Computed example of a mutant assay.
Amino acid sequence: MANGSRQAAWEFFGAELKRWREEAGLTQVQLGDRVFVSGGHIGQFEQTIRKPQLDVAQRIDEVLQTAGFFERLWRKLIKEQPYTEYFAHAVELERLATEILQFAPTVVPGLLQTPQYARAVFLASNPLATDEYIEELVRGRIYRARILKDATRPVYWAVLHETALRIPVGDAGVMTRQLDHIAALMRERKVLVQVLPFAAGAHPEMGKMMMLMKFEDAPPTVYTEGMRSGSLLDEPTVVRRIQESYDLIRAAALSPEASLALLESAAEDYRRCASTT
């Protein structure tokens, strides 16, 4: 489904939600209270600013007695978008975030990846996939990164463990271009990147990827990812603890200037390796 038709389908979802809510005689706040989200979230669902998660769509069906209509429509729309179901909501929130804070323990984050690096990552996970399938995944990943080029881009602050710089994803040429790309974004002041060096030793949330997203008119949300699964966390106590862990990781990381120097040094190492092969 093309982006335009998918957006139109979500607008239909929002319009139907508003129609059913008003027929039930409920305000946005009243419906939000019954499905355990804020009234502001209901308004954002109706205006297609934000997409609900599956459990919210299911609770809307229960409250409005719509016999599973919103769940079925949600499943159809999610199935026809280019991201896995568990990640689709995180992608939607990325577009709305005013600030994105990310920790990447082993792999360069998707928003910073080059097409060549992304292709190598996807091929490692899908060794028998067709070229067409791999290229579709790569296009989806690179499309996401457009938010870093927008005039209204969010503040993006990433901490990469040195492991992500040293694991050769693809060949030396791929890694050279990847690290050059991150360095260029840093020099253009489009992103803030720090490197957590091996020398830092133990650190909070070891081995766990996290992405903390903050918004203008909604509480912060954390996305974490595991084996073929992902979770969005917005319980205030949990988010606060994760923010504390992220702050400790940032404090242990190299300064942005020292991080840039390490990135460029690693890129030169790969460049020399590529020139000898």
Results as ranks from 00 to 15, higher is better:
M1S: 11
G4W: 04
G4L: 13
W10M: 06
E11M: 12
L17E: 02
W20C: 11
R21V: 01
R21I: 07
L26E: 04
Q28M: 10
S38I: 07
G39Y: 09
F45W: 10
E46P: 07
Q47S: 15
I49E: 13
R50A: 10
K51F: 09
A57I: 07
R59L: 12
R59F: 02
I60G: 06
E62C: 01
V63N: 08
A67M: 08
G68K: 09
F70D: 04
R72Q: 14
R72L: 11
R75I: 09
K79P: 01
E80H: 11
F87E: 02
A90L: 11
V91G: 01
L96D: 02
A97N: 04
E99S: 12
A104S: 15
V107R: 07
V108M: 11
G110T: 02
L111K: 02
P115E: 15
Q116L: 10
A118C: 00
A120L: 03
P127V: 06
V138M: 07
V138N: 07
V138C: 04
R146I: 00
Y156P: 02
A164T: 06
P168A: 06
P168Q: 14
V169C: 00
V169I: 15
D171C: 01
A172E: 12
G173W: 04
M175H: 00
L179E: 08
L179D: 02
H181Y: 15
A184H: 12
E188R: 13
E188V: 03
R189K: 14
V193W: 03
L196A: 08
L196C: 07
F198E: 12
A199P: 06
G201P: 07
A202V: 14
P204S: 11
M206R: 14
M206K: 10
K208C: 11
M210K: 04
M211P: 04
F215H: 08
E216S: 14
E216Q: 14
P219E: 13
T221M: 11
V222E: 00
V222F: 00
V222W: 03
T224R: 08
G226Y: 03
S231D: 15
R241D: 13
Q243W: 10
Q243G: 13
A253S: 13
L254M: 14
S255E: 06
P256Q: 07
L260T: 09
L262S: 09
L262K: 09
E264I: 01
S265K: 14
A274W: 10
